[in-house]
Computed example of a mutant assay.
Amino acid sequence: MNVSLTPVLESLVKAKVESGLYNNASEVVREALRLMEQRDQHTLLRKELELGVAQLHGGKTTVFDMNASKAKAIKNAKTGRKVNPLVTTDNP
């Protein structure tokens, strides 16, 4: 895979490598992509938090029932329903 960078971004990558923090440009790009993925996850979590706060202020909350939640999760898994990525265990 080849990636084209602006001269400014290319200078930034070179500076990171020259600083000794990274061995090569690929490491810099991989780290940048990891950080971008982390930022996207934080954005998703913030949106969910805002929704939850709005529901709380709107009086749209209920008491949490772990057994009912587990039963619903099992039912959803058996029917192949897509799981919200925020409730999976493989998130960083």
Rank of each mutant, 00 (worst) to 15 (best):
N2E: 12
N2I: 05
L5E: 03
L5D: 03
V8A: 11
V8Y: 06
V8S: 08
V8G: 02
L9P: 02
L9N: 12
E10Q: 15
E10Y: 13
V13C: 03
A15N: 15
A15G: 12
A15S: 14
K16L: 05
E18P: 05
S19Q: 14
Y22S: 03
Y22H: 13
N23W: 08
N23C: 10
N24G: 10
N24R: 15
S26G: 11
E27T: 05
V28S: 00
V29H: 05
R30Y: 03
R30H: 09
E31Y: 08
E31T: 09
Q38P: 01
D40A: 11
Q41K: 13
L44N: 02
L45Y: 12
R46F: 02
R46L: 03
K47D: 03
E48W: 03
E50P: 05
V53T: 10
V53H: 08
A54S: 13
K60H: 12
T61H: 04
T61Y: 08
V63Y: 13
V63T: 12
F64C: 01
F64H: 09
D65H: 14
M66A: 11
S69Y: 14
S69D: 07
K70H: 10
K75N: 09
K75Q: 12
K75D: 05
K75L: 10
K75E: 08
K75T: 09
N76C: 00
T79Q: 13
T79R: 14
T79H: 11
G80R: 08
R81F: 02
K82E: 00
N84G: 02
P85V: 00
L86W: 04
T88Y: 02
T88G: 08
T89P: 04
N91P: 07
P92M: 02
P92T: 06
